[in-house]
Design a protein around this nucleic acid. Sequence first.
DNA 1: AATCGGTTTAACTAAATGGTTAACCCGAAC
DNA 2: GTTCGGGTTAACCATTTAGTTAAACCGATT
Lengths: 203, 203
Amino acid sequence: MTDKKISTEENILEIAREVFIQNGYDGTSMQMIADAAGINKSLLHYYYRSKEKLFGRIFSKVFGQFVPQLGVVFMSDMSIEEKIYAFTEQYIDVFIENPLVPIFVMQELSKNPQHLVGLIREAGINPEIMIESISKALEKEDMQLKDPRHFLVNMIGLCVFPFAARPLTQRMIFNNDEDAYHNFLLERKKEVPEFIINAIKKG
Amino acid sequence: MTDKKISTEENILEIAREVFIQNGYDGTSMQMIADAAGINKSLLHYYYRSKEKLFGRIFSKVFGQFVPQLGVVFMSDMSIEEKIYAFTEQYIDVFIENPLVPIFVMQELSKNPQHLVGLIREAGINPEIMIESISKALEKEDMQLKDPRHFLVNMIGLCVFPFAARPLTQRMIFNNDEDAYHNFLLERKKEVPEFIINAIKKG
DNA sequence: AATCGGTTTAACTAAATGGTTAACCCGAAC
DNA sequence: GTTCGGGTTAACCATTTAGTTAAACCGATT
């Protein structure tokens, strides 16, 4: 029945996602997507009226993957150390599955920050609550680093950077050995939380 | 005499640098550069034969700014704490002056990692020596974090991330207040080294 | 004053771009 | 079996793309 319809329409989305993430908005043409999906270019416009519209739908989903739901973790009843472990492990895992997402999202946001307001709303993210819940968690256990803003940027940066800068770091530190770098990323699920906890614990 | 010649030729480079950094390779057309420089498009091809050649010259210079000369700092006779302060302050300052460089470099490297070998050689960077000098510095003062690779990625990530993700973080944490975010970046010249030193010191 | 070299431009080309149009295909409803 | 409607396509359009060519400009040398 609608089997094939759904298949085509959703298949386009999946393929377009990959092509866009790989090449960025400017680096992607409708023809590239059509070829990758094995369809005619006109069909893209039939389902998604324009390149921008197609991109918009994809980007808002990918954006949601990139911006973590920190509130959930930090308002739970775990200890702060458990929270940090839980968050970093989970966040790094997301990027091991979607390694190109960070650079893609940051690149496109850097070009079009105007859409951020809408994107944040769509994704159901509430920055104030995020900051507030982190702030409380830090104060409650009397940690050394009190400023939740630096804490947040540090934590996310430590997770994201090795993915965003992967080509460079893999080449320079691991002589471009894919497996060694993958292993390095896995190690970071322990290294990063340990690093953070040491940094903020009262000595 | 050759005043105007140099002026035009170098002016193109400077303008093209800005346009490329702002819009990326794919997002930049020769026409855009010509307009920004107030010259004819043909003149671009006259001085730099193709878009790729023009971009290549610019990129290798910008790449050099992005990849720090870690060896210099870490082989000096400072204490490790002084080294961390010196490096992070200096590195963050570079990006305050060139805020779009990180995302630009990482984006283009992500699309064309093949050129990395040449770029690293051109920039006169020796990864082994970098790693080795950090390793020695860490061991010498008997620090907790012994793996120079994680240390390096952590330190650079903490410096770079707030610039790469600026639109997002500025919007979410600072309600898009430019000045507040700039101030936040300045604070990090103290916050980051303190964070790192706490993290790696033997408790 | 003629000319020579590097500089700058207008006019052009071929290919690729995003997007439109009109036709066609084909299974389901009548 | 005809028609109806969504799915699909080929052919097309206007614009933009990187790059070329040939001519013009202009200050310095002769």
